[in-house]
Amino acid sequence: MGFAVAGVFVVLAMLVVLSAVKIVPQGREYTVERFGRYIRTLKPGISILTPFVESIGRKINLMEQVLDVPRQEVITKDNVSVQVDAIVFIQVMDASAAAYRVENLPYAITQLTMTNLRTVVGNMELDEVLSQRDHINSRLLEVIDQATSPWGVKVARIEIKDLTPPPDITNAMARQMKAERERRAVITEADGEKQAAITVAEGQKQAAILQAEGRREAAFRDAEARERSAAAEAKATELVSNAISAGDVNAINYFIAQKYVEAFGKLAESPQQKTVIVPADMASLVGTIAGVAELVKTAQAENAAPPPRPRGGRGGPAVPPTGA
């Protein structure tokens, strides 16, 4: 009988010890209550409670948690119904506040997120909702983090998972996107044709400028050649005129014979001319050539003749030439 009583006491002692010693795992915190009243929070590790007086109240998870916000239908500012769902990342920073300031913390945060999601999306048009997800996320994060701060919870981030417009709106958006891309393609093609036309016009302009410069240079060269030819012709005419003024008529014959021979030679060199008609009056040509020959002989004789010597004795008066 004594052994049975001793065994009972040992078992009771072990139960008391086990109830007094608490081990808190990493990433969690336990609240301690004394007769139902919160007194302290147990950190990760081993702790000892007062038997039959203190007890564990709530076990709080301090690790970051993910809450799934159910899909809901939201009406935008331009009266378009959109299906929206999201996820919320939270982390408990104060175990006592999370345990005793709100009942069912995950449910409360989920409902708060759904309400604010309807508010934020309802103040935006459909195009803004579809293109500004980051803006929606930031506004929701700011509002919900401020609302959950008294609960000892830090909202790390909120992400919109899906935005689904009605099927007719989706089809209209697809047609709009197709029309926009076709418009961009037409504009791009028109810009390409415009640039090509500009390039071709610039090339033609440069070619015209170069051709004009070439024609100007050629005209300048032709004018210079004609000027030199005219100067040479004027010089030759001047020489002939001087010869005529000096009484030498053969110079005119030489000038006319030269022009005549040049004209006759050009007539013979013509590629279309196969028959050359020689004028019947060759006597004038022969006479002209004879005059030219006489002119040449006279010039040679004048150059070869010695200067005349004076007649008479040394120191006497000069005798005039015969026929003077």
Rank of each mutant, 00 (worst) to 15 (best):
M1D: 15
E180W: 03
N242L: 14
I160W: 08
A232R: 15
I23V: 13
N61G: 06
R37Y: 14
F220D: 12
L285G: 01
I158S: 04
A98T: 09
R101L: 08
A257Q: 04
E233L: 14
D145H: 03
P150C: 12
D248H: 09
Y254E: 02
T50M: 12
V16L: 14
R184T: 07
S149F: 09
G312Q: 12
D281P: 03
S96I: 04
M93N: 06
R216P: 00
E238M: 13
L62W: 04
S270I: 00
V5P: 03
K59G: 10
N61P: 04
A179G: 00
L117G: 07
S131F: 09
Q272R: 11
Q273W: 00
E142G: 05
M114K: 15
E33V: 09
L117N: 06
E33A: 08
R228Q: 15
V249L: 08
V66N: 13
A280T: 12
T322H: 07
W151I: 01
I48G: 00
Y100G: 05
Q72H: 08
V121N: 11
G122L: 08
E128R: 06
D281S: 07
K154T: 11
E29L: 07
K178H: 03
V88C: 08
G315S: 09
L130E: 14
V296I: 13
I158C: 05
G7E: 07
E217L: 06
V319G: 10
D127E: 15
G122K: 12
G312P: 09
S270D: 04
A225I: 03
R139P: 05
A236M: 15
G122Q: 08
Q132S: 15
G192N: 10
V240E: 09
Q195F: 01
I87G: 08
Y30C: 00
P307L: 14
Q91Y: 11
A234F: 14
N116S: 01
V319N: 04
I87C: 04
V249Y: 14
Y100L: 02
S47H: 12
G291C: 07
I289H: 00
T298C: 11
Q111I: 01
A174C: 01
A174L: 11
A6C: 10
P308Q: 10
P51I: 13
P44E: 01
L105K: 01
P306I: 15
D127M: 14
R228E: 10
V296P: 05
V10W: 09
F89P: 05
Y260V: 03
I75Q: 11
Y260T: 04
V5D: 14
Q83A: 15
R118K: 14
V296Y: 13
E33K: 06
Q258M: 02
Y100S: 03
P306F: 14
V32P: 03
L49Q: 02
T199Q: 13
Q111V: 05
Y38C: 02
T170A: 00
S47A: 13
V155D: 06
Q206V: 06
Q132V: 08
S81D: 09
G315C: 12
T188L: 07
E189P: 04
M114N: 10
T170F: 01
M14F: 07
V92G: 10
V292I: 11
L239G: 07
Q132A: 13
A231W: 13
G45N: 11
K266V: 02
V92C: 10
R175C: 04
R311V: 14
I136S: 07
Y107R: 02
A108H: 01
G57T: 02
I144M: 03
V88I: 10
T188E: 12
A6N: 11
R181P: 02
V82N: 06
I60K: 05
A207I: 06
